[in-house]
Computed example of a mutant assay.
Amino acid sequence: MITLTYQYKLKPNKQQEADINLMLDVCKSVYNYGLRERKDWLNSRKSPINSCSIVSEYIIPADTPYPNYNHQAKNLTIAKKTNTKLKSVNAQVLQQTLKTLERAFSDMKYLGKGFPRFKKKLRSFVFPAMLKNCLGNNRVKLPQLGWIKIRQSRQYPDGFQAKQARIVKKATGYYLMIIFTSSESAPDNPVGKKSLGIDAGIESFVATSTGKLIKSPKFLLSQLR
């Protein structure tokens, strides 16, 4: 499968801009709430058996399961039924926020990265699935936002299907990053009988593993003569 990511600048109207900012704010709240829940659970397991902290104490039952992604996603579905703020944002967008938090903890465990931090601001969120016939001339149709104008600086790739979209807020405005996929697979590199190592040298333009040195062709100087 071949995957391409194209970036376009968004040109939202006032209502769409307000909706985007609301999504960013709610996603930030969900991320920070999920992080606090995990942090409290971990701290509750650090308290000694025979003593309590004089600063604070996390009273969480011993049989309470660790709040991983599946646990938090289930609670999110329940909370959306009564919380009007959560209701206002696409459910898949909020689930992707929890997946981002899950990935941060996974990177901490397996890649040695630092403990996840609370977010003062959230710069982006993801629509994991695109709508049918969502691509138009200078516009894209997104869940909850509807048709939104873009500055189509390049044509959509032929033979590819839009699979996922991310909205990013930058200092220069809002941007849309669309992931396109194709069922075609990239051909494997042909395996030859011999291999050759090539290195860009300082004194020579190219040095090969066979000891051959190639001087710089100096195309510009040859054309100026």
Rank of each mutant, 00 (worst) to 15 (best):
K169V: 06
L22Q: 11
K9H: 06
L111S: 05
I54G: 10
H71F: 10
I179C: 15
A62R: 15
P116M: 02
I178G: 00
S106K: 00
A73V: 01
M1W: 14
L94H: 09
Q95L: 07
Y31S: 04
Q144A: 14
Y69A: 01
D63A: 10
F160I: 04
R123Q: 15
K212Y: 13
S47L: 10
R117D: 15
K74L: 12
Q95R: 08
Q15P: 15
P217K: 02
S195L: 10
K215T: 11
Y58W: 11
Y110F: 06
Q96M: 08
E57F: 13
C134P: 00
K28Q: 06
I49V: 10
R225F: 13
S56G: 14
F125C: 03
V26M: 02
S47C: 14
L220D: 08
L24N: 02
K99E: 03
T181H: 09
P67I: 00
R151I: 15
L98V: 02
K11V: 12
S183T: 12
G114W: 09
I20D: 04
S209F: 04
G34Y: 01
I20S: 02
S51V: 09
V89F: 07
W41C: 05
G173F: 06
L94F: 11
P190H: 03
K46F: 05
F118K: 08
F219Q: 12
H71D: 11
P12Y: 03
I179V: 12
A73L: 00
F160N: 03
N133M: 05
T210W: 09
C27R: 03
M108Q: 05
S204P: 09
L98I: 02
T64V: 06
W41A: 03
P48L: 02
K163M: 09
S195F: 08
N68E: 01
E37N: 11
C52A: 14
A165I: 00
F180Q: 03
K121S: 12
D25S: 15
S222H: 12
K218S: 14
F125W: 00
L213Y: 11
R103P: 03
L176T: 01
R45A: 05
V93Q: 04
A62D: 15
L111V: 03
A73R: 00
L213T: 11
G146N: 01
T100W: 09
K99F: 02
A18E: 14
A162D: 03
A171W: 07
I167P: 00
Y156H: 08
I59D: 15
N68Q: 01
D19V: 05
